[in-house]
């Protein structure tokens, strides 16, 4: 389910290569950049969505990508003033708007 959506997103990215689209998935953000959570994807299991909300990934929350693990996954995010690691699969289920 998620992989299909990632595929669509990559197509969308390819059509506007110069400026990254403001709406993205959290998994697409580079380390050092931030985004504001807009929604949890509907394809995400309700229990997982609920947990992401409880962890601070709530609409309106600011998330900064801090660093990736040496093997690229998982990724450490700063959200709600603390640091939490998520796997890319989870981060791909979080819609964000890029911040300057």
């Amino acid at each position: 389910m998620l992989s299909v959506q990632v595929g669509e997103r990559q197509k969308a990215d390819a059509s506007v290569p110069a400026v990254p689209a403001p709406d993205a998935r959290l998994a697409d953000l580079r380390p050092g950049t931030s985004g504001r959570v807009t929604a949890i994807d509907e394809a995400v299991e309700p229990s997982t969505a609920r947990r992401l909300f409880d962890l601070g990934f709530a609409p309106g929350a600011e998330v900064t990508v801090l660093r990736k693990a040496p093997l690229g996954d998982p990724v450490v995010f700063q959200v709600a003033e603390y640091e939490v690691a998520l796997r890319r699969v989870q981060a791909a289920g979080i819609h964000v708007r890029r911040m300057a």
């Binding site: 992401l52 640091e83 939490v84 998520l86």
Partner: peptide, 10 residues
């Protein structure tokens, strides 16, 4: 069974 999320506070 569902795939459960992975998260870990640092």
């Amino acid at each position: 069974g569902p795939v459960l999320p992975f998260y870990m506070e640092m």
